Simulated scan of single mutants.
Amino acid sequence: MTSPPILYSFRRCPYAMRARMALWVAGIAVELREVKLAAKPPELAQVSPKATVPVLVLQDSTVIDESLAIMRWALAQHDPEQWLAGDDAALIARNDGPFKHHLDRYKYPHRYPDEAAGDEATFRLDHRTHGLSVLLDLDVRLGMSAYLIGDRPTLADIALFPFIRQFANTDRDWFDAQGLPHVQEWLERHLASPLFAAIMPKFAPWQSGDAPIRFGP
C-alpha cells in the first residue's frame, strides 16, 4: 500500500490552517506530523531547509513548502467545491503582504524593538489601525456578497480566513466593537463550519518513531 503524503504542520499557524483546509476539501489524506515550533524535528529541516510550516512531502519526494502552493496543488488534484474559481491573486497578496505585516506587529510588538523605538504600546496600536483599514475594505466587499468572490467560499476566503481569525482573537472585545458587520459575520460562518472543526484536532508533537497519524476525510 502506498504511503500518503507527509504534512508537517502546527495546529494554530494560519499558513498551516489554510493548507489543511484545502487538503481536506480536496479529499487528500496525509500523514500529519505536528511540529512544536520551539523544538522542531530535524526531519523538517532535512526536507525543507527554511524549516517553517506547512511542508508537504509527496510520495515521489517532491517537497512543497509554501502554503498557497500546497492549496493549489491539492485543488488541482480534486476541487469539488470549485475553490480555484476564486483564486484572487490581488486579495491574497494584500493579505499575505501588508495585512500580515501589520498583524504581526499588532500581535507580537515585542518582536520588533527597533521598529517600536521604545514605545511598544503606540507601535502596536498604530499597526492595529493599519490592519483595521484592510478589514474595512473587505467589509465593503462582503456587504455585496456573502463571500469574497460571490455566494460561496472559494480559495480567497480560505486563504484569508486564518489570518483574520488571528487578528480578531488578539483582542476579541475590541474587534467585536468595530464597525465590521460583514467581516464579523463572514468570520463567524468560517469558525462555525464543519470544515474548520475537522482540521483543528489537537495532536502531540511528532517525533521520529511515532506511529503515523492519518489526517483527512
Rank of each mutant, 00 (worst) to 15 (best):
I28P: 05
D137L: 09
L58E: 09
I70P: 11
P194T: 04
L191C: 05
H182N: 11
L32C: 07
E120W: 14
W73D: 05
D87E: 03
P14N: 04
S61R: 15
Q77R: 15
A85E: 15
D173M: 12
L160D: 04
Q166W: 11
L195K: 04
W24L: 03
T52W: 00
F167V: 11
G179T: 15
A85L: 15
P49R: 08
A89C: 11
I6V: 13
R20I: 09
E34G: 08
Q59N: 12
T129I: 13
A204N: 09
A93H: 06
E31S: 00
Q59R: 13
L136D: 14
A45R: 00
D65N: 13
L191G: 03
T170E: 03
F10T: 05
A69M: 13
I213G: 06
M21K: 09
E66C: 14
R94I: 10
D96T: 09
L75K: 08
S145G: 12
S48A: 15
L91Y: 04
P5R: 10
I213S: 02
M71L: 04
H110G: 15
F215V: 09
L148W: 04
P4E: 07
A69S: 15
A177S: 15
R20H: 12
G97Q: 09
W186P: 10
L125I: 14
S67V: 01
S145C: 10
W73L: 06
M144Q: 15
A146V: 00
I213F: 02
R152M: 00
P41T: 14
A156E: 03
L56W: 00
L138T: 09
I164Y: 08
T122I: 10
M71G: 01
S145N: 15
E43H: 02
M200T: 15
M144C: 14
G131C: 01
P201Y: 12
L125C: 13
L37S: 14
H102E: 05
N95C: 12
G27L: 07
